[in-house]
């Protein structure tokens, strides 16, 4: 079985052709770097995304937040919900943990801006 993907690792957006044997990735072609190969294997077995959203502090300021690492794609909405529920008070430094182990993914959500 062959699957066509577009790599999202960088703005090149390489078109990837992936040979599958059942749920196993046999080969990846069309990528211009190693990351495309990794992405295809990950995407077809356990797709991951970095989640970005905002949280409102008690002072009513909007703080941008991101998951420090990509989280499973099917947990995106759970992560957003968890981040939104976080209690944040100023000041905030970029990299401060806003929600530890967000939605039980093992990944921390951190502030993306110092306020």
């Amino acid at each position: 079985m062959t699957k066509e993907l577009i790599c999202i690792c960088c703005p090149m957006g390489c078109g990837l052709t992936v040979e599958m044997n059942g749920s196993e990735v046999v080969s990846v072609t069309g990528n211009t770097c190693k990351r495309g190969d990794d992405y295809a294997r990950q995407e077809l077995t356990a797709p991951m995304r970095t989640v970005t959203t905002t949280v409102r502090t008690a002072d009513g300021v909007s703080i941008p937040v991101k998951t420090k690492e990509p989280v499973p794609k099917d947990r995106i909405f759970d992560c957003v919900k968890d981040i939104k529920a976080a209690n944040v008070t100023l000041p905030v430094r970029v990299g401060d943990v806003i929600a530890a182990n967000v939605a039980g993914t093992g990944i921390d959500a951190v502030a993306a801006r110092s306020v």
Partner: peptide, 24 residues
Amino acid sequence: NQCIHNGFGLHTFKEELTGPEYAE
């Protein structure tokens, strides 16, 4: 500052940043 999504900085900083992080 309003581009809170990630994908910035792969060339400049060799890592993937959000807009506010890149600006900072």
